[in-house]
Nucleic acid binder design. Structure first.
Length: 106
DNA sequence: CGAGTGACCGCAA
DNA sequence: ATTGCGGCCACTC
């Protein structure tokens, strides 16, 4: 059988790469999708140490807010989201629940 | 291998 | 709204 040989890292990075433009996801959701509902922090770790080429700006916290240690600060994070066509007010994604990505085939 | 780090999460005061 | 604390996880050094 196929065991989930793919490391969390790869799984998470794959998911992040799939988040559609205009949508967002959260660290917790990614962790859950990857099968580790309590690994939100680990996802944050990957955001920091992982592949910088991935669209990490589409990953926000559980409240739809900007990430704390985003390079350049929350302003930078918000700017990136706006470039995706996402509206951000007070460092929070507008219509967060609407734009929230539910993964592939939910 | 052990300790430290972190872009989290939820709850309590 | 803000601050503090514990918890859980993977990664780096």
């Amino acid at each position: 059988m196929h065991k989930s040989n793919e490391s969390f890292r790869k799984t998470i990075e794959s998911l992040v790469a799939l988040v559609p433009v205009g949508s967002v996801t959260t660290y917790g959701d990614l962790a859950t999708m990857a099968g580790a509902p309590f690994a939100a922090r680990a996802v944050g770790g990957l955001a920091h140490y992982g592949d910088i080429n991935l669209p990490w700006h589409r990953v926000v916290n559980s409240k739809g807010g900007m990430a704390r240690g985003y390079p350049g600060g929350m302003e930078s994070h918000a700017r990136q989201l706006r470039l995706d066509g996402i509206k951000v007010t007070k460092y929070k994604v507008d219509n967060f629940e609407e734009l929230r990505w539910h993964g592939i085939a939910r």
